[in-house]
């Protein structure tokens, strides 16, 4: 119930995240995923990108991924619009 407030030590900055799931997801899901952008990734995957308010919001997004029965492949924090800070798991 107690959602972390913006002043919490963890996740205080809204960060950009990149969430990779299995399957090609239609553009229409963008609103469902709080306005994250959707783009095709490698090998029939979909990459969701966008700002995420805090850790609680990120968990909310991941839960939505789960609700649709999508297979979660990777979650990375990245610079706005840029490439991932860590990319080891992609190769």
């Amino acid at each position: 119930m107690d959602e972390p407030r913006a002043t919490d030590a963890t996740g205080s900055d809204p960060g950009w995240y990149r969430i990779c799931v299995q399957g090609r997801l239609a553009q229409r899901w963008s609103t469902w995923f709080d306005g994250m952008s959707l783009s095709p990734g490698p090998d029939g995957t979909t990459v969701l990108r966008g700002p995420v308010g805090d850790q609680a919001a990120l968990h909310g997004l991941l839960q939505k991924v789960g609700d649709l029965g999508l297979i979660l492949l990777e979650v990375t924090q990245e610079d706005p619009g840029g490439s991932g800070r860590t990319s080891a798991a992609e190769s």
Partner: peptide
């Protein structure tokens, strides 16, 4: 033959 998300 389609790689769309099955439910979509």
């Amino acid at each position: 033959g389609d790689d769309r998300y099955v439910v979509d």
